[in-house]
Write a protein that binds this DNA or RNA. Structure first.
Lengths: 187, 187
DNA sequence: ATTTACCTACCTATAAGTAGATAGATTGTT
DNA sequence: AACAATCTATCTACTTATAGGTAGGTAAAT
């Protein structure tokens, strides 16, 4: 892994762990032993770095979408759950949540990239829900896009809450409720 | 309103709008025309200020709990919805969400105060759910505390999402879904 | 006489970013 | 193949701005 990728990965960790306004180039420089000016070479501004981090997430999401193409809706949705569970157990939050709370402090290009990622995620989950409904596995709903948003935001803030509580026992229980709530004939 | 209260209110706004690490004493000083050192007089450290902000929220919550004591569970829960709706239309996030994403950058006393607030909120919502179940208005659930958390996280992330989308048309729709989901005989 | 609520004038640390140098790899030209 | 030009990825050293906080003074209220 080259330095540029390393920088993105460290930035990703710091961002998700501390928030965008609470990590600096110096933090990165200390971790991977590179001067801050060299980070500026790769990412002239912090916004550029933020965009790179989101792009990485976007690519990972696209990979997941492709890889799970032929799986069942339940397997797909579980993939999503696992992702948030892992965040939670690592005391991290979703990138959307991490950036949204300070949204008004980010500049336009970064905000657009975040919106981009969010839309992709929403669209994917919406399609999973539709698929599940067509296969009569998931309960029907009038507006599955809305339901998708609800599902995502649920998971997002769930990891946030469990972070405060400093014990993520509740997360499994809640995720079970959410899944149950999605399925037909759950009992 | 005296300066101290003004400082808390401005800090509250800035915190909810931008996050804890993205506002400074200078920001406050510019808005209410006071020197930063005078803010330090009232709140020696930023942590002290943060704690004061949360305490304000805690008091408001306690007031709401007292005021709505004799109302129906539905009315109480609607009170909660209204609060989040207002946040959402003002492009703000819930204080819990605002502080959680940078949680690891906050020091202990502030974190404890946040936990305090969160617990109070969870307990209140749990008691509303229990009451509603006893009165056969809400669906029963095995673990109402878990369900309370789910409800809160739902609302928390709702405001975050509407912020990203930069349009809160979906808010009402989602709130209706959540409420419907709570009630027995909803149709 | 003391406390309250402010002030001016600092300090130290850090943030983000810039300027200019350099060693080493890559590429183009004859 | 030899040589020059250019590019890549890093460095040192700097600037400007801001953050959070401190020291010490002062006018007015209690």
């Amino acid at each position: 892994m080259n330095k540029k990728e390393q920088i993105i990965n460290i930035a990703d960790n710091l961002l998700i762990e501390k928030g965008f306004n609470a990590f600096s180039y110096k933090d990165i420089s200390k971790i991977i032993d590179i001067k801050t000016s060299s980070i500026h070479y790769h990412f002239p501004t912090k916004t550029d770095l933020g965009i790179a981090v989101i792009k990485k997430h976007l690519e990972a999401l696209e990979q997941t979408i492709i890889k799970t193409k032929d799986k069942t809706p339940i397997e797909k949705i579980k993939k999503l759950f696992i992702y948030y569970k892992r965040l939670s157990s690592n005391q991290m939050v979703c990138i959307v949540g991490a950036l949204t709370s300070g949204l008004n402090t980010l500049n336009e290009p970064l905000r657009i990239e975040l919106l981009n990622f969010t839309n992709k995620l929403i669209d994917w989950v919406t399609s999973i829900l539709n698929e599940g409904q067509d296969q009569l596995i998931f309960k029907t709903s009038t507006d599955s896009k809305l339901k998708a948003k609800l599902l995502i935001t649920n998971l997002m803030s769930l990891v946030q809450l469990s972070r405060i509580e400093h014990q993520n026992n509740s997360i499994d229980g809640i995720i079970d409720i959410i899944l149950d709530d999605l399925l037909i004939n759950n009992n």
